[in-house]
Nucleic acid binder design. Structure first.
Lengths: 229, 229
DNA sequence: ACTGCTCGTCAAGGAGTCGTTAAGGCTTTT
DNA sequence: AAAAGCCTTAACGACTCCTTGACGAGCAGT
């Protein structure tokens, strides 16, 4: 991240001025707007990395501005407000705001929250979970809940599928016995590790070429199991 | 997102209880920890979607817990604290926290901030690859529980992994023998320092280029061990 | 140089965990 | 009502890994 752009939306000039000074001193590029419509326009034009938004705007309600932004952008929004009421905070946060700071605020705190917001959004991520997982000889469709081995469809029972699904959704990762038992059988079965042995054996018999020397459904003794592609 | 998991870290039972009740009533899965070390372990095991963390913990400073989590995870962290000082907030947020709520807090507000945090992370969230600790020749994936040396996967046993994990989570810092024994083997093994010699030797044989002249798994005579990057 | 301590290394035994199979009994389907 | 399918449970052999003891090296103090 080179230089983050902050869009400041407030109708009180002295607040805008204070923020502009402090933010540019910290190396942020600062864009300002005095009302809601101008804010939405400015956001579309400048694509800010974070928005600081006062709720008390002359033309639009603050939550409308949030909704207007959220319609097309996931930019972090930090709400400023004179009102510290809980209902107000809840509404703003549920409308899509990321943080809520009550006026009067400490500049240090606002800057820290700003840093936190920018840091978060700069961690980009693509969706890692694919609908269908392939391993060369086995294919698992997580949505249709169908499993094929060498092209032929394999029938799995509910429990078998529960185990396999959890392992495949975490393929490559180790899944602890406790987690498997908790998620598939329920919290009261956390110690019934015997079930896992039975069901892993069944899954291996159905999916592995050599069930006695599994390539996908791997046991990590004492810890859990993992699905390898 | 089907059912979000929340890790609640607080040493005050009534707060943990209140949160557990309110959160599970809203359909969250709730996992709790009453101190920092338990929190770090629980986070590794259950991979929560969001962490609610009290700063006043008995064993570790809250910011250390944040740092310990941020070493390998990008899970949203909401900090709870009795102190409303600005410096405290700034420190926590800069350490990697995502939000800061002052006690006493309104449950509505906390829930709203929680929703905001989960919403955010489910958008930018899991990119499939985990945070990995790298040293040039060794790479350690703390989530998948996988270790590679020069690209080749190395198999570790449960106990070997327990020792390595604790050292890597505190990389750069000295970990005392007692702490290692307590966390990996249990409180009654605090004086069985022999185990450490055996297991450190095994780990070095598996991970170090020259096991007799280790570069990562360093012995601090009379005190403990340290993992150097 | 000798003694006492801590650390590193190796190997063997034994405890605990895992894989496998099959049968009983419950639920659901036909 | 019968049949099929599935979960649970038990038993046993096989295997992995934890534990344990013995021995040598390095180091500090006497």
């Amino acid at each position: 991240m080179t230089e983050a752009t902050v869009l400041v939306v407030d109708d009180e000039p002295q607040i805008v001025r204070a923020l502009r000074i402090n933010l540019s001193a910290r190396g942020y590029r600062v864009v300002t707007a005095h009302d809601g419509t101008a804010a939405l326009r400015a956001a579309a034009e400048t694509k800010p990395d974070v928005v600081v938004l006062d709720l008390g705007l002359p033309d639009l309600d603050g939550n409308e501005v949030i909704a207007g932004l959220r319609g097309w952008s996931t930019v972090p929004i930090i709400v400023l407000s004179a009102r510290s009421d809980s209902p107000d905070k809840v509404r703003a946060l549920d409308a899509g705001a990321d943080d809520y700071v009550t006026k009067p605020f400490g500049m240090d705190e606002l800057l820290a929250r700003l840093r936190a917001a920018v840091r978060r959004s700069s961690v980009s991520g693509s969706d890692g979970t694919d609908a269908v997982v392939e391993t060369g000889d086995v294919s698992i469709d997580l949505v249709a809940k169908k499993v094929r081995r060498d092209g032929e469809e394999v029938h799995l029972t509910k429990t078998e599928w529960g185990v396999l699904e959890l392992l495949v959704r975490n393929h490559g990762r180790l899944v602890s016995q406790k987690q498997l038992l908790r998620e598939v059988w329920g919290p009261t079965y956390e110690n019934e590790s015997h079930y896992l042995r039975v069901y892993l054996a069944q899954l291996r018999r159905k999916l592995e070429r050599e069930p006695s020397r599994p390539r996908h459904l791997i046991t990590e003794p004492g810890m859990g199991y993992r699905f390898e592609l």
